[in-house]
Design a protein around this nucleic acid. Structure first.
Length: 569
RNA sequence: GGCCCCAUCGUCUAGGUAGGCCUAGGACACCGGGUUUUCAACCCGGCAACAGGGGUUCGAAUCCCCUUGGGGCUACCA
């Protein structure tokens, strides 16, 4: 009988869900869905120093946003709970005692510093560090005494002295020589189990059949396999699939450190622009020259000294602080966490599609796929061995495609969620209006693009900010202001401002003046939006309304072309 | 340093497990051109790869070895 397939995603709640984790979760989920199996979410919170209280919740929010639902786990229940490892300590203790009793594990009392010295010695001799096992294992009494003396007490697994063969779905058979795997710690001095121990126990107890995870875990596998044999020798091993790693375009594994790194670079650039010491101005990121470091620190909610330390490269502030400072500077940071992509206006459908294609493909030329297609086509046998680079441009292309593909109501829903998240003034708009806006934005690349195009509708008339380039190019050249004044008078005498009527008016004016439509439409656009980027101009004017449109045109004429305006008046 | 993994256009990849169907296919990016009320989108066309060296074979992108390059792990983190 074919046993039911069970997969799991087991994040440690140390921060937001990042793309790497999301991809791991997705592949496990897809495999479970493809096979009609079960997908478990397990929170590996065994490190008290690194866990943050809100992280687990955030990770769950992000998974839900992506559309990844877990069958068992926190907030879902299931027969194999609890699903937080911190609540399973009695279980781990029971198994550790069993190993200790069978002399398959033993107590150790070295301090971290002592171990570090041993490690350095091994490296100096060009050897890998392997913990040397005592000939006689310390007794429980020895452990008590050591503890009383203030020594840290840990428990190590006595790894059998034999070679281990790991059967991996994507990589085939990998052999690890005997003696290569050192006795690793399974219980820390604070009493918590280590990852390598807890995950083996839980995978067995939760009946996990397939362990799909990143290649970074490949070297842990022989040890975990040996543990499994010691604990559950009568149960078949789970199947392993070690996926390729997603690497960043800056080299190396895609990591959350990239955001603070990018911010630091931007600040340094801005400072060197101000000092005139910049090496290559062409390479500069779009940061304003000159930074008021005191104000920047204030924007991030940190002390000036902390900021200096960050800029010097000595310390790194928390993610929200980094985000706040980037926003203050107007610098776009590379998205790493799933929420970053949400805030940049990406669609979950596009994220999932893109993530799925990182190290996997359906075997034909299909690329743009919806969830059901992915589930149907997914197969562990088609996982790629080679690492893949996270290509943001391709993601953008996928997003554009999915924005077009997704049903109108869905896109509207995503847009509303996005507006809430970024606290846009557009958020107050009614569904009917938003729906029209979204329809007018066919071909937009992200939700941020849509927001940018319609934002002007939701600002007060005196809140319009004029883009320098747009003003120079459209208003101050080729008599843009003169044309605008004519458009203003035509608009003023129109009874009904429908998009059609506005189009007719602008087109006939263009014809009359023997110029393209752009020549008459662009000044009007800049006048009511402040920029050259907006919804189609006819609809823009209609939605704004006659009164607001005229006010904005008058404001523009007054601000940039006083004399022209006065002549008219 | 030790151990492990990987290697096709700039990028993601198909083809590799059955060597000839590959003058190596698709997509993104890029470059030309078209369309156009802005930004996008859209349409047409183009550029572009089997890391190097040895084998095995009638024949290798495909199998083997070496070199080089990239990545991962090397914690009382997961």
């Amino acid at each position: 009988m074919q046993e039911r397939i069970v997969t799991r995603f087991a994040p440690s709640p140390t921060g937001y869900l990042h793309v790497g984790g999301a991809r791991t979760a997705l592949f496990n989920w897809l495999w479970a869905r493809h096979t009609g199996g079960t997908f478990i979410l397990r929170i590996e919170d065994t490190d008290q120093k690194r866990n943050t209280p809100t992280a687990a919740q955030q990770v769950m929010d992000d998974l839900r946003w992506l559309g990844i639902q877990w069958d068992q786990g926190p907030e879902a229940g299931g027969d194999n709970g609890p699903y937080l490892q911190s609540q399973r300590r009695d279980i781990y203790d029971k198994y550790i005692k069993e190993l200790l009793d069978k002399k398959k594990a033993y107590y150790c009392f070295e301090t971290a510093e002592e171990l570090d010295t041993l490690r350095k010695q091994a490296e100096a001799q060009k050897q890998g560090f392997v913990y040397r096992r005592p000939t006689e294992f310390p007794s429980t009494e020895d452990a008590e005494k050591a503890r009383a003396r203030g020594r840290p007490v840990t428990v190590r697994f006595a790894v059998p002295d034999e070679s281990v063969m790991v059967q991996d779905i994507v990589r085939g058979v990998i052999t690890f020589a005997a003696g290569e795997i050192g006795d690793f710690i399974i219980r820390k001095s604070d009493g918590f189990p280590t990852y390598n121990f807890a995950c083996v126990v839980d995978d067995r107890l939760m009946n996990v059949t397939h362990i799909i995870r990143g290649q970074e875990h490949l070297n842990n596998t022989p040890g975990q396999q040996a543990l499994w044999q010691a604990l559950f020798s009568d149960e078949p091993l789970p199947k392993y699939a070690h996926m390729s790693v997603t690497v960043s375009d800056t080299g190396g594994k895609l990591s959350k450190r990239e955001r603070p790194k990018a911010l630091r670079t931007a600040i340094r650039h801005a400072l060197s622009v101000a000092e005139g010491t910049m090496q290559d101005p062409a390479q500069a990121p779009p940061a304003k020259a000159g930074v008021d470091l005191d104000r920047l620190a204030e924007a991030g909610g940190i002390a000036r000294e902390q900021l200096d330390s960050f800029v010097n490269g000595d310390t790194t502030p928390d993610m929200p602080i980094v985000g706040a400072m980037a926003q203050y500077l107007g610098v776009a940071l590379p998205e790493i966490n799933i929420v970053d992509f949400f805030k940049s206006g990406y669609l979950p459908e596009a994220m999932v599609n893109f993530l799925a294609l990182l190290g996997w493909n359906p075997g034909d030329n299909r690329e743009v796929m919806v969830l059901d297609e992915l589930i149907e086509a997914f197969d562990l046998a088609r996982l790629a061995k080679a690492n893949s680079l996270f290509d943001r441009q391709k993601l953008l292309a996928f997003n554009t495609e999915h924005a077009r593909l997704v049903p109108g109501e869905t896109l509207l829903m995503h847009f509303k969620n996005y507006l809430e998240e970024v606290e846009s003034p557009v958020a107050c708009a009614e569904d009917q209006l938003l729906s029209r806006i979204v329809r007018l934005c066919e071909g937009a690349r992200t939700l941020a693009d849509i927001e940018r195009k319609c934002r002007f509708l939701f600002l007060d008339n005196d809140e319009i900010e004029y883009d320098d380039k747009a003003v120079k190019k459209v208003l101050l050249k080729n008599d843009g202001l003169g044309v605008l004044a004519v458009v203003r008078d035509k608009l003023a005498v129109m009874n009904e401002l429908t998009d059609q009527a506005i189009e007719d008016m602008l087109r006939s004016l263009a014809e009359e003046k023997q110029v393209g439509l752009g020549k008459v439409a662009q000044p009007l656009r800049v006048a009511i939006c402040g920029t050259t980027i907006s919804l189609p101009i006819f609809d823009s004017v209609e939605m704004l309304g006659k009164e607001n449109a005229l006010t904005r045109i008058d404001n523009t004429l007054r601000k940039f072309g006083t004399h022209i305006y006065e002549e008219k008046a």
